[in-house]
Amino acid sequence: MIEKSFDHIRSVNLSKIIEAIKEMTISANYNLNNDIRSSLKKSIEIEESKTGINIINQLLTNADIASNQKMPICQDTGMAVFFVEIGQNVHIINDIKNSNNIIKGTLEEGINEGVRQGYTEGYLRKSVVNDPFERINTGDNTPAIIHYDIIAGDSLKISFAPKGFGSENMSRIYMIKPGDGIEGAKKVILEAIDAAGPNACPPMVIGIGIGGSFEKAAILAKKALFRSINESSKIPYVKDLEEELLQKANNLGIGPQGMGGRITVLGINILTYPTHIAGLPVAINISCHATRHAEVNL
């Protein structure tokens, strides 16, 4: 006898996705996340450098101006990065007719259309060029960078982060040896943070991916930046590692904007993954105090 499964299939309209993405790109760029804001406030108590305290105060004032006047916290409104968790029982319906941009009715076209509308209507900077060498601005900040996870069920969760490139440029990936172990990982992580220094608009936020393959580690590092800096890893030794690295990074002396001080890094988030017997990839995605993210469940 053949067993049939009649799993429920849920439909989601593409127009709804576009609308949600548009709103999310705008609000994430105008409003500093609460985890960062409260961390900046707390850091004023710890910072010893007068210049450092002035800088942190400027950042808090800046966040107020941005949200009151509905303008971007930072002019680098980034490349639009998405993590999409889509249940395998979700069916996307193309309810968009007569659009130049929606041809096949794919989720990807919908996400890019949302970016296009959000970056245009929200007066966000268009920072994407068509080709690494030709470098002609695409004019609407597309294409977005989209990572998909296909999961069980019929949910659809889309997370967004506009990623600025001042800090992105300082990110590093190291393929260290299994024998280098956790001490080796700490060494390269601190080396990358130290090298980023004033270039990455400290106080920084650091996303780290350890394990997997070359590209998996980098994607994990990016994904780690989507987690609130108030949340720690659920794996006890990883949580300890996050705390130890945070302390060591703040001992580097770089300080706010690299002008010296106690507050160099606001948070370090680490994700790990199984890896190969021969390898130990460590990816460090550097981000800044303007680490922005938002998510929506559709």
């Binding site: 800088i55 400027q58 950042l59 004032t61 800046n62 966040a63 101006i65 941005a66 006047q69 303008m71 971007p72 916290i73 930072c74 002019q75 680098d76 001042g166 004033p198 608009c201 904007q257 690299g258 002008m259 800044c288 105090h289 303007a290």
Partner: peptide, 13 residues
């Protein structure tokens, strides 16, 4: 000179 990176709305004012 260094201006505060990311204080973009404040500097715009």
């Amino acid at each position: 000179f260094g201006a505060v990176g990311g204080a973009a709305a404040l500097l715009a004012s």
